[in-house]
C-alpha cells in the first residue's frame, strides 16, 4: 500500500482530545472536531450530542478535497483555511499538517478573530502530536490486532 495505515493509540488520542477540549473552552466554540482527510472522525468535543459527527466528518473531508482540487488547478499548494458564515452559526476549517482537518463550529458567543487565534495555537500542538504518531506507526513490529483474525471471524460478521 502506498499510504501508511492510519492508527490511533490511547496516548496520542488523549493528547488530541486534550487539545480539542481546551479549544472548545478557549475559543468559546460550540463544537470542535478533528477528521482525517479521508473523512474518518478522530476526535470531537463540545456539544456533540446534537450533531451528526459522522456525516459532518465525511462532508468536511469532501469539502477539503474539493478545495484542494481547486488549489491544484490554480497551482496553489493548498488553501489551508476556510471560513463559512451562516446566520446563526459559523464554521472554521483548518488543514493541519496537510494530514488532518480541524473544524470549529461557533456562534455569536465567539468571534472569527478569537477562533483564528486559538486555532493557530492548537494547530502547532496538533502538528507535533500527529508527527509523533506517524513516526510511531512507521516503526516496525507494531502488532495489528487483525494479523490474528481467521477466515471464520470474517465469515461470522456476515452470518446474520
Amino acid at each position: 500500500m502506498v499510504n501508511p495505515q492510519m492508527v490511533m493509540y490511547e496516548e496520542e488520542f488523549n493528547q488530541i482530545q486534550g487539545v480539542v477540549d481546551r479549544l472548545v473552552r478557549e475559543a468559546n466554540a460550540k463544537v470542535v472536531f478533528i477528521v482525517d482527510k479521508n473523512g474518518q472522525l478522530i476526535a470531537a468535543s463540545g456539544d456533540v450530542e446534537n450533531i451528526d459527527t459522522t456525516s459532518l466528518a465525511s462532508l468536511t473531508a469532501g469539502n477539503i478535497a474539493a478545495t484542494g482540487g481547486i488549489a491544484k488547478l490554480l497551482r496553489e499548494n493548498e488553501f489551508a483555511t476556510q471560513f463559512h458564515e451562516g446566520e446563526n452559526q459559523n464554521i472554521h476549517i483548518q488543514l493541519v499538517g496537510n494530514r488532518v482537518i480541524l473544524v470549529v463550529i461557533f456562534d455569536s458567543k465567539s468571534s472569527l478573530g478569537l477562533v483564528r487565534l486559538r486555532v493557530r495555537k492548537a494547530t502547532d500542538e496538533l502538528n507535533r502530536i500527529f508527527e509523533a504518531l506517524l513516526s510511531k506507526v512507521a516503526e516496525p513490529g507494531g502488532d495489528s490486532p487483525f494479523a490474528e483474525i481467521t477466515d471464520d471471524d470474517i465469515d461470522n460478521l456476515f452470518n446474520d
Binding site: 500500500m1 499510504n3 501508511p4 495505515q5 492510519m6 492508527v7 490511533m8 493509540y9 490511547e10 488520542f13 488523549n14 482525517d36 479521508n38 474518518q40 478522530i42 495489528s144 490486532p145 487483525f146
Partner: peptide
C-alpha cells in the same frame, strides 16, 4: 487506507 482506532476499539 483503513483507520484503526485502539482507543475507541
Amino acid at each position: 487506507m483503513s483507520f484503526i482506532n485502539y482507543m475507541a476499539r
